Simulated assay, not measured.
Amino acid sequence: MIVKSLKLILISTPIGFLGSGRGGGVELTLTSIVKGFLDMGHRVTLVAPKGSILPFDCERAELITVGGIDQPSWQHQDSHASMVIPLEGVLPKLLNVALELSKEADAILNLAYDWLPLWITPLVETKIFHLISMGGVSKVMQNEVNNLSNTHHSRLAFHTYSQASDYELKDDPIILGNGFDLKNYQFKLDNKGPLGWAGRVAPEKGLEDAVQVAAALEDTLVVWGFLEDKEYASKIEASVPSGTIEWRGYLDTEVFQNQLGACRAFINTPKWNEAYGNVVMEAMACGVPVVAYDRGGPSEIVKSGITGWLTTPDDIDELTQSISKIDQINRINCRDWAVETASYQAFCKRIFSWISREINI
């Protein structure tokens, strides 16, 4: 039972409109936060790039869209790149709208992984909280997160300890995990289907390794996700026999989970320190065991030998061998683990507890 109805302003990712798939896991996280806070009786306003949409079960939230040029993702820049805001960039416009709305709100929760919202936090009266969505891919971002930790540590939260370890924080990190509407993911017992992989099709996601595993097993790899780098995808496809990859594209959750649940195993091959690994938990919510590199967030959410197998990062032979052991995993354990650790209701309670401590409600 809540003490007070919270009025929360959410800032969306500035690298693409919600529903485009460009925002990656942040899009799903935002939906879970909106739904969870509405269910708890709070009031939510989401400020997002023009073109954004919310699922029908989030319609009670106020959605304000803002036009502007997408912000370049830090993921695709050199680690020592400087901060750049495009002319007519959407990022400062999102922040301006959120700050204006915050005059009649309790707090802002920012999910934009960028320098400006972090930098401005100590300079305004509004209490801005930041759920950091990536590891330390940029020196500029690492420096700004570290700076804010020194002055306003309680305003920062992370998905996993692995992600938080990329930063030099003043104190122990606030870890929130993530959350999903698990009724949208149907458990499937059948373990005879294809191999699966999902994510933005971009080099840091390591799709080429999963494709090599499928080729070695003379199997098909079903691939879901936003095709961000077409040249990269073409090179991968040319490196293996025709038919090894079955491209499915970016799908909404209902269609995606139905197809995902038919897989006998899900492969996760990030080349960087993944903050959490939404698709890993989505697979387990469908009962699909996960074979993943022991790197980043997935190393904390896959229970090796129980919900799948963790393997040495970048070791394709070990990854391939682990697929052969997938029948040792009870698919019910995968679903149970998702229910135990990653419901959107529990996730939002953790967020509310974090914010409410700071604003004294």
Rank of each mutant, 00 (worst) to 15 (best):
E237A: 03
A238D: 13
D190R: 14
L195K: 09
C263V: 10
G196R: 04
G193T: 10
Y161I: 09
A238K: 15
L221T: 09
T151L: 09
T244F: 07
Y167Q: 00
L207T: 08
K188S: 01
G135T: 10
P241N: 04
N150F: 07
D252E: 14
F226D: 04
K170I: 00
V240K: 00
N147P: 01
Q186N: 09
A157H: 04
K170D: 00
G225P: 06
N143K: 15
I132R: 05
S239D: 06
K230R: 12
E208M: 07
D190H: 12
E231D: 12
G135W: 03
N184C: 01
V222Y: 10
E237R: 13
Y232M: 08
I132H: 04
D171L: 11
K139H: 01
T151E: 01
V137Q: 05
P241L: 12
E218F: 03
I128L: 12
L207P: 08
D166H: 10
K188I: 09
G225V: 09
H152E: 00
T126C: 13
Q163S: 11
D172M: 08
K230D: 03
Y232P: 06
T151Y: 09
K235Q: 11
V211D: 03
G136A: 15
D172E: 10
L189T: 08
D229Y: 07
T220F: 03
G135M: 10
I245Y: 01
N178L: 04
N184M: 09
E168K: 14
E237S: 11
E125T: 07
E168Q: 13
S234F: 09
C263A: 14
T253Q: 13
R248W: 10
L176Q: 01
F158Y: 13
F180P: 04
E208V: 07
